[in-house]
Design a protein around this nucleic acid. Structure first.
Lengths: 113, 113
DNA sequence: GGCGCTTACCTTGCAGTGCAAGGTACCTTG
DNA sequence: CAAGGTACCTTGCACTGCAAGGTAAGCGCC
C-alpha cells in the first residue's frame, strides 16, 4: 500500500461508520450507493470489502434497518435506514468528533480561525 | 471497554503518531512526559503500552532520534527529537488532516463557521 | 547495607477495523 | 442462451492501540 493511502486509511478508522450513519440520516441508500457517495466527492474513498462488513455490524448493533427493493434494472437492492438507536449514536458522535477535532487541531496547530 | 472509550480509541488511530511528532516539534521530550502531555489537557489520553511501541516504530522509520540523559532523580531518560524526515512527515500530515477534517465535517454537518 | 517506593523503559498477547481479492446471484441485452 | 453489468457478501490479512505484566535504576529511611 502506498504511504499516502495508508495514512488516510488510518484516519478513516472509526469515522467511516458514522459517516455512513450521517449519509443515511439524509435519505435511504443501498450498499453500492454508499460506497459511491463516500468515494466520490468527499475524500473518504472506500470499497465494498469495507462497506458490507460494516453494514452487517451496524445492523447487528441495531443502528440501521434494511428493506429489499426491486431495482428499475439489475438485481434487487438492499436499502438502509437509521433506527432511533442509530440517530442517537450519530448525535453522540457529532459531539465526540468536534471535541476530538479541536484537540488534534490544538496539538498540530491547524486551528482554522 | 466502555462504549465511549472504544469510540475515542478508534478516532485516535493514525493521529496519535502525528500528535507525538507535533509535540516533539516544540521541544524534546521523554516517554513518560509524552504520555502525560497527551493524556493531560488534550483529550488524547493514552498509556505506555501504546507509547513505547509507537516510539520504536517511529525510530525504525527514521522520523525521530533519541539520546539518553541522566535525570535529576530516578533512572535515566530517553529523550526524543524530530529528524528532518520526521518534520517532513509532520508537515505532510497537517495538510492531510485539514482535508480529512473538512470532509468529515461536511458529511456530519459539523462545520464551524 | 538492605528494604520498599517511585520513576522510567519495554514486551507480550489480544481486539477491532479497513482492505484486497475472490465469489455468487440476478437481470438485461444482443 | 451467452456475455456483461450490477449488487451483495465472505475470507484472510495487516496494522495499531491497549491492558497487563516485567525489568531496572535511583532515592530515602531504618
Amino acid at each position: 500500500m502506498s504511504e499516502d493511502a495508508a495514512l488516510t486509511t488510518a484516519l478513516r478508522r472509526g469515522t467511516i461508520e458514522y459517516c455512513v450513519l450521517a449519509l443515511l440520516d439524509r435519505r435511504e441508500l443501498y450498499g453500492v450507493e454508499l460506497v459511491q457517495q463516500l468515494s466520490g466527492a468527499l475524500g473518504m474513498s472506500t470499497s465494498e470489502g469495507t462497506m458490507y462488513p460494516l453494514l452487517s455490524r451496524l445492523r447487528r448493533n441495531g443502528r440501521i434497518a434494511t428493506t429489499w427493493r426491486e431495482a428499475p434494472a439489475g438485481p434487487p437492492r438492499r436499502y438502509y435506514t437509521l433506527t432511533p438507536d442509530g440517530e442517537a449514536a450519530l448525535t453522540h458522535f457529532r459531539t465526540e468528533w468536534v471535541a476530538f477535532r479541536s484537540g488534534v487541531d490544538r496539538i498540530l496547530g491547524t486551528e482554522s480561525k
